[in-house]
Every structure is written in structure tokens, then in C-alpha cells.
Amino acid sequence: MDAKRTPPPPTPPNPNPSVIGSGAAADGGGFGRGEAAAATKHMLAFHFLRALSRIHRATPVTRRTRTIRRAAYSSMARAASPRRAWSRALLGQVRARRSRTLMRRAAVLVRRRVVAAPAPSPASARGVRIIAAGETSAAARAVPPPPRQQGEPPRAEALRRLVPGGAGMEYSSLLEETADYLRSLRAQVQLMQGLVDLFSYQ
């Protein structure tokens, strides 16, 4: 006996209709014109979907949220031009995080295998902290902000904190990086919104 199939649930409300629209309405500002923008969107979707396909099903939701967010930013950085400072900064963060994770895993494995602790080296006996290969000090990692220029408004510091890699830039290049970062962020939001809509209809 054929049961009546119910129609699919209604569409969920859009969280921010001014930003995420349908089709070319949300794609203003000249983005999406030309083959370069289309190729960038293709690469963005490719990297993001490949990263999504590697996530464990058994991962808890909180950790999965963080992993998806990192996947979104790293796919943005990989799809963008490598000449951009924000993409280099994001990829540098990804590499640093990966190297820290690998070093932590290697340290756990070494701790499991080695039963007796090795003899302390003279440097550690003197109390000198040995910095590992992948670890960088906070002073070397922090880029000193450039001196504030003449025509630079005071709100530029907030923009430097928002755009990745914007700490050591001058103001005009910061504005250019912000424009490119905005384009990539908007394309990423549209892709993620499309995926959410697709999976919520299933």
C-alpha cells in the first residue's frame, strides 16, 4: 500500500538576507564576472568539499564545528591567489597548527615508548628552555604594528585585527587586502549556505 508522501519541509529562513541572496543578487560588486572569478569559486568549492569529506562521522559536534570553520578558512586561502597577504597568513596559521599537532602526537608516542626519562641535558639542567623546531616564540610571531601614518583613521587598527595578516601592512595595501578578503568571504558564505540548504532538504 502506497503511503502518501508529505511534501518537503519549507525553506528555513535566511539568517541575513542582505548578505546571502539567491543567485546574482547577492553577488554584487563586480564579483563573479569573468572566468577568473568562476575558477576561484570552483576551486573554493572543491577544496571545501574535499575537506568536509575527511571529517569523522564520530567527531563530537563542538569539535566538528571548529574543524569545519578551519576547513572553510583554509579552503578560502587555497583558492585565493598565493600573492595575497591574508591567504599567506591563513596558510601559515594552518601549517603552524598542523606542525604543533604533529609534534604533540610525536611527543605522546615518545612518552609511551620510552619508559625511563633521559638524562637531563646541561642546558635543561641550567634551567634554559630549549625551543623546539616547530615552535616559535611569541615575540617572533607577533608582528609589530607599523607607526600610524598621517591620513590613517583610528579605526584602521580594528580592521588590521579583522583581516588576517594585516598587522604589518600600510594603510593602502590593507584596504586592498580587505577588498579581496571580502570577496572570498562572501563566496565562502554563499557556498556554505548552499550546502546547508541542500543538506537540510534531504
Binding site: 525553506t11 546571502i20 541572496g21 539567491s22 543567485g23 546574482a24 547577492a26 553577488d27 563573479g32 572569478a37 568562476a38 569559486k41 570552483h42 563566496a187 554563499q190 557556498l191 549556505q193 548552499g194 540548504d197 532538504y201
Partner: peptide
Amino acid sequence: GTAGMANP
């Protein structure tokens, strides 16, 4: 092309 990227 890529016009209908987020079209429900």
C-alpha cells in the same frame, strides 16, 4: 556557470 550558487 556559477550564477546559481546559493539558489534554494
